Amino acid sequence: MKWVKITLPIIILSASAAACWALIAHKPAVAPQAGGKPPPQVTVATARLETLRMDVASQGVVRPRTEIDLVSEVSGKVVAIHPAFVAGGFFKKGDRLIAIDPRDYDFAITKAQAQVAEARKDLLREEAEAEQAQNEWQALGGGDANDFVLHKPHLAERRAKLAAAEADLAAARLKRSRCDLSAPFAGRVREKQADIGQYVESGKIVANIYATDIAEVRLPVPSEQIEFLDLPLFYANAAQPAAGPSVTLRAQFAGKIHTWQGRIVRTEGMLDDKTGMLYAVAEIRDPYAYHPSHPPLAAGLFVQAEIAGSERSDLINIPRAALHGGYQVYVVDRDNRLRMRHVGIVRTEADRLVIGKGLNADERVLVSGIELPIDGMQVVIKTVAPGGRS
């Protein structure tokens, strides 16, 4: 049976090889498919040169340009106050806001007047005595007299005492005038800290007041957007700085959005060392004037600001959806193939990109239709985004 063990495997292997050859030789022919996968359909927008005004958005809080602490310069009891001397009260320039009891200061004026009268009397008497001494010396014919004999030092003393008495009278009258605290400008009371009947010390703050002629808003501007604004940087050699760009302020008040107009008048001295921003100051004149379309621009109101920027005619505006992978967009060439471009983005807004370089006018830019575009991919333009053309 030894020959069976040797020949049986050889027979099985030969049969398997013959069967494989038969299968290969007689396999059915595969019919080719009719056509491949069609190119994807895409939406494009046409890149166009536009003249754009590069407005800069900012925000800030309204504050008065002039705000001071009203301080008593004399001590005494408050005997009268202005009807508008309350928080929020309006007053005019020159209005007497608060009056301090003046009687002590009136007494001081009377006393100073008496001292002036006495000093003037002493001076007149000394002048008469000096004249008499001069005449007597000349009658004696004794030569040149010294100053003491002619009463010259005495006259100088009397004149100095009169001048001192008149200065005391002027000081007494000045203190009396300070019993009435008058408004140095037309404005409004923010906070009062004294009332009628209260005794106030010299140097005490009796109120905080601010002017209502001009309001200001500090507006932070990122350093990379300063180039879009014609800001008054106030160079040291500028004789008269030019007016800055206009500003539109918006705020919600009483359930409505209101707008006010202002203008940038200056920039602050340096960049903020924490944020790297430059603060521009917008000025709004007569913020409390009546206007039928909006309420007063009250101090403390938070506002959104739009600063008018410079116009540029070398920029391209495309939909924001055209941006892929950071700073890349794809254009469709004449053969309907995608070509990748690296672009310089000047500004990114809610629904658009403002491109400074990397695109040419009238190029077709891919907007949608492909999630992962590939450079050189064949496409079919299905639609053109609004504002574009194929």
Rank of each mutant, 00 (worst) to 15 (best):
R389L: 10
A19G: 07
L123H: 01
K152N: 03
A47S: 14
F85Q: 00
L150Q: 09
A361P: 14
G269D: 11
A99G: 02
V303T: 01
C179V: 00
E306T: 15
P241E: 04
A165C: 10
A172W: 00
A238M: 11
E131N: 10
E371V: 13
L181T: 10
I381H: 06
H324I: 05
V78G: 05
R389M: 09
G143T: 06
L97P: 00
A80C: 02
G187C: 13
Q378Y: 00
D168L: 08
A299G: 15
T66Y: 07
L231G: 01
L366A: 09
A117F: 04
E371P: 13
N146R: 12
V354C: 07
A321S: 15
I316N: 14
Y327F: 12
I10Y: 09
S14C: 05
R389P: 04
A211H: 02
G142V: 09
S177N: 15
A145D: 02
P64R: 12
I345V: 02
S310Y: 06
T259M: 09
K192Q: 08
A186M: 07
E227S: 08
P292H: 00
M54K: 06
R103S: 04
F234K: 14
H324A: 07
K27C: 06
L124Y: 15
A186H: 10
V189T: 05
L162V: 10
K274Y: 06
V42G: 01
G388A: 13
K382Y: 05
E73C: 00
K256R: 12
R334F: 02
P9N: 05
